[in-house]
Design a protein around this nucleic acid. Structure first.
Lengths: 131, 131
DNA sequence: CAGAATCCGTTACGATACTG
DNA sequence: CAGTATCGTAACGGATTCTG
């Protein structure tokens, strides 16, 4: 399951806007998903790759680096064999959880009530374990 | 002030993901801002254009149509002179407010503590009236 | 006023191959 | 395992022009 935020690209985005820059935290098709999975605890790179199904290493790396730069996640080398890297939410990063939860709840609500194949839709909602 | 969610484009995004589709609600560089401003009450097209500063009519229209389709906002023709169109959040759309508020709060927190030009940054935060 | 239509630059993301 | 390098594509958004 993926927590994608689609279509948020902005080639020449509006600047000088405080709120915009805040939303940039969860910008990217995969970013919210990454936060979502990290909310369940620290996780290694390869584990995240597995969680996020078809994501490519390239994208995952980029998003994690960005989140690290912004202070949302931490990156830690683990001296195991083979060596791995562990990512975790920072204290402030954790605060994004309720926000994501809310958006997902609203999304599910809208999905359910947009009638038609509502039942089918709801049925197709795989384990959306709200953290 | 703009509430942009940047970099969320996805030319060939991961599909079949419930959570992804939920986050798609606030996808787009301007979408969160639109919701943000509509949270203060119904608003006409031209008013939103003014609120969202440099946004183009084309983009605003697209995002509003999308939000309308998803059931986040309503569109209503007003028979005034000149005629105008009024947009408003739906009941469910209103529920996105706390989520946006949270993200903005976290963003401001991170911005403030990422040191360096922190004071300058904080000072430059114009009226971020959390609705 | 509220938009639709066109053209176009930018870039997030995917796919693939390669490295320490 | 955890990336990095290159290439190609889709679509977001900006600018401009035109219409009901």
């Amino acid at each position: 399951m993926v927590l994608k935020v689609r279509k948020n690209r902005s080639p020449a985005p509006p600047s000088g806007c405080a709120v915009s820059e805040c939303m940039a935290l969860i910008a990217g098709a995969w970013t919210p998903n990454i936060v979502w999975y990290l909310a369940e605890g620290p996780r290694r790179f390869s584990e995240l790759r597995g969680d996020l199904a078809p994501i490519t290493a390239r994208v995952l790396t980029r998003r994690l680096r960005e989140l690290e730069t912004r202070g949302v996640v931490t990156r830690r080398h683990v001296a195991s064999s083979p060596p791995s890297v562990e990512y975790a939410l920072t204290e402030i990063g954790e605060e994004l959880r309720p926000a994501l939860r809310t958006v997902v709840e609203v999304g599910l609500k809208l999905k359910a009530r947009s009638g038609q194949h509502a039942s089918a839709t709801v049925a197709s909602v795989r384990h959306v374990a709200l953290p």
